[in-house]
Amino acid sequence: MLAKRIIPCLDVKDGQTVKGTNFLNLRQAGDPVELGRSYSEEGADELVFLDITASHEGRKTFTNMVQRVAAELSIPFTVGGGISELADVERMLAAGADKVSINSAALRRPDLINEIARHFGSQVCVVAIDARLDARGWTCYLNGGRIPTQRGLFEWAREANDRGAGEILFTSMNHDGVKTGFANEALAELARTLSIPVIASGGAGAREHFRDAFRDGHADAALAASVFHFGEIKIKALKQYLHDEGIAVRNI
């Protein structure tokens, strides 16, 4: 049976992970490759590395990091942050990334999705959407949630799907950081209307939240950062719990 995926997300700035970590046994706690390796050994199914560096120099450091991840880890990984044109995608894939995640660049120029799908295949193209529920409904935001757009979550996700996206990574800005669970109703609506996998993001605070995102939100994968980085939830224990709850997961 196809397993539900657990995906830790690592924010990387100038080649170092930004958030604190509980992996004190690491030689270099801030090294994303070391952190990625320990997640992989714990049973993470995929990893996401987000480049939050702005400088050109930082970009180069990130590319070097991607090459090290590709050489050292044996599970698939996605890279995102600052990818705005086909050349960026090509650079990341050449460095060894399995998938790239695009966000604001896709909203600004939706053809980018078609171009990635055509050149490298849909499986490479993860379209990340940051959306907030307000009086108008679910609205998409640009630039890490700073700038609202006129696009609604469901119609934009559908368009991305039709343009050739391989997966939708949906982050609920209402739920992100609150640790009270994922946006399961919106997730379920995405699962019902899209023909590609949906990754749930934003809101993980307890093991039950992952179960609910899979069971009620029908998500194909769930992504989280701080609950893993701070060791509040151990991936191995989370998977045992999900297995006991009747959800198909690997490595239990």
Partner: peptide, 16 residues
């Protein structure tokens, strides 16, 4: 050939 809506193509992820 998908038989149900949940059958997504490509088949992507960990399977047994």
């Amino acid at each position: 050939c998908p038989e149900r809506h949940e059958d997504k193509v490509p088949h992507m992820g960990w399977n047994q």
